[in-house]
Design a protein around this nucleic acid. Sequence first.
RNA 1: GGCCCCAUCGUCUAGUCAGGUCUAGGACACAGGGUUUUCAUCCCUGCAACACGGGUUCGAAUCCCGUUGGGGUCACCA
Length: 538
Amino acid sequence: MIVTRFAPSPTGYLHIGGARTALFCWLLARKHQGKFILRIEDTDQKRNTPTATQQVMDDLRWLGIDWDEGPDKDGENGPYFQSQRLDIYNKYLQKLLDEGKAYYCFDTQEELQVLREKAQAEKKTFIYPRPETFPTEQEVQAARDAGKPVVVRFCMPEESITVSDVVRGEVVFDAKEFSDIIIQKSDGFPTYHFACVVDDELMGITHIIRGQEHLMNTPGHMALQRALDFKTPTYAHISVTVSEGGGKLSKRERGKVLQKAIKAQENIDLTALANAGNITLEELQSFIDNKTAPDGPNITAMAKHLEMQLPEINVIDFFDSGYLPEAMINFVALLGWNPGDDREIMPLDELTEAFTLERLSKTNSLFDRKKLVSFNTEHFKTIDPEKRLGHFKDYLQTKDSPLAQLDDETLKRLLLINEGAQTFGQVVDKCMFLCKDEYDYDPKAVNKVLNKEGAPELLDKTKEALSNLEEWKAEPIHKLIKELSETHEVGMGKIAQPIRVSITGTMVSPSIQDSLELLGKQKTLNRISNTLEYLKTI
RNA sequence: GGCCCCAUCGUCUAGUCAGGUCUAGGACACAGGGUUUUCAUCCCUGCAACACGGGUUCGAAUCCCGUUGGGGUCACCA
């Protein structure tokens, strides 16, 4: 049976790159009726954040990626937090120590730094100098008593190691390049390399799909597997997703964009900005000076304050921007993978059916948000209406939108009449007028549509006709407008546009008949009357 | 800098492993046109690529070597 796993470290929200890795793992497992495990790699106590595991799970769920075993779903391979598996790692660590395959070291960071700089100066790879004889238990104890940091290093082999990678082929690593890796940190926690190797074996992972950045770690992992008599799983090191700005799509990018925007703006109220971002003025200044960076949520809050759009990086950013998870999944799947034919828009089950490791590509790909928008538009049209409604309600709720007050039937109708919308944000923009009785008139709209010879008179006649309409439904309203345009011998736009500006203040809304029906007869007539009054004042 | 990976339209990619059917296909973007009561949608047309240099071969996008370019990695982070 095929068993895969997604193993994030709980340091924040799920990153789009992580989502892609998780998706490929999930796709492989589901395609072969295998198992997909979620494991939390929380061995770095300094970097862990308490809410991250929950956030990552929420993000995965939103995307539609489920797991067979994980923190909240017990199975035969628990626990799923590495911090709860210390006994297991220690057992294997002791075995390596006893067999002389690993040894203790007490070097300080400073001492190591000197060695590294020396290697750098000689233009050589830094190789940790393995001692002739390993420290004894007594020496270890003495070092501990003296307050020295004690770590355990694993002896890398003398022979070269060939990694057989599904996407890269055979990659040979020369033994000359091997440096003994640390497998236990001075705080007693295992390093990623060790915990990962042990867990993958114990959990029976058959396929490891991970980012290309791990390729260089793989010889170390394989050496560990051999020393411990573990099986070597099938590896697939997938390409990296890069950003428009070049380089890896990273969390730092949002900060950079924001920082640039702050610098570019003149007379900016820094105090207000710091307040909005919930940070101190000093912290803000330090951020502007490129010394430190605030946390993700603070950055998001400041961007909102400045009314600027930041590039989406985390899965939750895309949710906030009004994208459909189905579109996200589809788009991300096609970054470094394709089904081998011309299909692009594919639902999850079709993606699963078509997925094979062999079609993973070697080249890095750039995350093109415009193409994402196009995918979203397409999925918006084809998705099951009930699902679409569910996603829309989630979106409105977290946005705290007034539209959230509307009942399901109305919301469904809104989505229906916005068939060509690109994102939920667009739907909201176009329909907000329903919940806004007070609004300003866009000067451009007034000039172009209302402030024209004969326009107020025509609007008045339209209002008259509308008030006499018995059945307030889209169909009869449409019929009425058509008749009006014929009797007055003008285009439909000449009738519809003035109404639109009257009831929304803008030139953008759903079709006029749908807009009017949803607004209701009384509100429509009131708003037109108000507009007519307003026109007399200018 | 050492090591490793990669290289087809602006972007995502098909084609490369098994060389000819490739005057290189699709999609997004862009440009032009059309439909439409606004925006969005939708339809049509167009623009546009085998990084470069050497080989091998009757024949190279495809195989080999080199150059250049891009990316990754060199932590008691994962």
